[in-house]
C-alpha cells in the first residue's frame, strides 16, 4: 500500500498527489514513470513521476481525470492509499549539456516536462520552455516552469493567457529568428508532438518526444506498448518512453491509443461516479 500524503487540484480535473514510495523515490530520474492500480479490480495505468523527494521518500503524480481509472484515483483523499505502485519504469531522460534546449509541454504534458526542464537547467543548459493549454484554467505548473526556465512562453488555444495559438508557434518564431537550438523536447498529446516533429524536421534539429501508448505491465512482458520507431518495433515501456521524434510512426501510435475507445465509452456509461470498480 502506498499512502497518499497530500492532494491538490491544479486545475479542473487535474490533480497532484504526493505519494509515499520510498524505493521509487530513492531511485527515480526525470523521464521515468510508474504503473499503479488503485484497488483489487483496478486497471494498471502508467503515470509520469512529475517530481520526487529522496529525503521524504515521496513522489509526485500529476494526472488528468480522463476516464474511469483516473477518475477513481482522483476520488482518493490524503491519508488513503493506492494498492500498487510499481517503478521507476522506462529510461531516464538523457540529461547533458547541449546548449540551448527548448522544452515543450502541452496540456497535462507539462507535468512530465517539468522535472526534465529542471534537470537540463541544472546541467548548465539555456532552457527555453513553451507550455500550452486549451485555456487559462487548464494551464498547469506555470510558476514552477518559470522557475526552471531562462525564458518561458505560454500559449492558449483561445488566447485567455499568453500567446493565442499553439505551442509550435513560439518554436517557429525562434527558428525564423535564426536562434540556435540544440535540442527540443516535447511532451503532450500525440498531435502536438507530431506537430513539433514536423516543425523541426526540415532543420535537422534533434527532437525528443515521450510516448504514451497503452500499457499493461510496463516491464517488457506484454508487447502492448509497441510503437514503430525507425521502422522497427520498440516497446515504449522499456526501450522508451523517449524516442527520436523524427523516427516515430505517430499515425500508428494514435490508432493504437484508440484501441479500447468503445470499451471506454461503455465503461463511462455507469455514470460520472463510475463506482463499478
Amino acid at each position: 500500500m502506498y499512502v497518499i500524503e497530500k492532494t491538490e487540484e491544479l486545475s479542473q480535473g487535474v490533480k497532484s498527489f504526493i505519494v509515499k514510495a520510498p524505493r521509487i523515490a530513492k531511485k527515480c530520474q526525470p523521464g521515468q514513470f510508474i504503473i499503479l492500480r488503485t484497488d483489487e479490480d483496478g486497471e494498471r495505468i502508467p503515470l509520469t513521476i512529475a517530481d520526487f523527494n529522496r529525503e521524504t521518500g515521496t513522489i509526485t503524480l500529476i494526472f488528468q481525470e480522463v476516464g474511469c481509472s483516473t477518475r477513481q484515483l482522483g476520488r482518493l483523499q490524503a491519508g488513503q492509499a493506492i494498492l500498487d505502485v510499481a517503478g521507476p519504469l522506462g529510461n531516464a531522460s538523457h540529461i547533458d549539456k547541449f546548449g540551448t534546449v527548448v522544452c515543450i509541454g502541452g496540456g497535462i504534458g507539462v507535468a512530465p516536462v517539468y522535472p526534465i526542464a529542471r534537470a537540463y537547467r541544472e546541467a548548465g543548459n539555456k532552457v527555453v520552455s513553451i507550455i500550452g493549454a486549451r485555456n487559462e484554467s487548464l494551464l498547469i505548473l506555470e510558476k514552477e516552469m518559470a522557475a526552471v526556465s531562462d525564458i518561458l512562453h505560454v500559449t492558449t488555444d483561445d488566447g485567455s493567457k499568453g500567446h493565442k495559438g499553439m505551442v509550435i508557434d513560439p518554436l517557429k518564431s525562434m527558428i525564423a529568428a535564426g536562434e540556435k537550438i540544440d535540442l527540443v523536447i516535447a511532451i503532450g498529446p500525440v498531435v502536438m508532438m507530431r506537430g513539433v516533429a514536423e516543425v523541426t524536421r526540415p532543420y535537422g534539429i534533434k527532437t525528443i518526444v515521450s510516448l504514451n501508448p497503452i500499457m499493461v505491465d510496463g516491464t517488457g512482458m506484454c508487447g502492448g506498448c509497441r510503437v514503430s520507431v525507425g521502422n522497427t518495433n520498440k516497446f515504449a515501456c522499456v526501450d522508451g518512453p523517449e524516442f527520436d521524434a523524427h523516427q516515430v510512426d505517430f499515425t500508428g501510435l494514435m490508432a493504437r491509443q484508440r484501441m479500447y475507445l468503445e470499451h471506454e465509452k461503455e465503461e463511462r456509461k455507469c455514470g460520472g461516479e463510475c463506482s463499478c470498480h
Binding site: 479490480d41 486497471e43 481509472s69 477513481q72 499493461v216 502492448g224 470499451h263
Partner: peptide
C-alpha cells in the same frame, strides 16, 4: 498480453474490473 489481460487483470469481468 491477451492472457495477462484476461487472467491476471480479469478482463472477462469488464467493466466490473477496470481492464478491457
Amino acid at each position: 498480453e491477451f492472457l495477462t489481460r484476461v487472467n491476471l487483470m480479469k478482463a472477462y469481468q469488464f467493466p466490473q474490473s477496470g481492464t478491457p
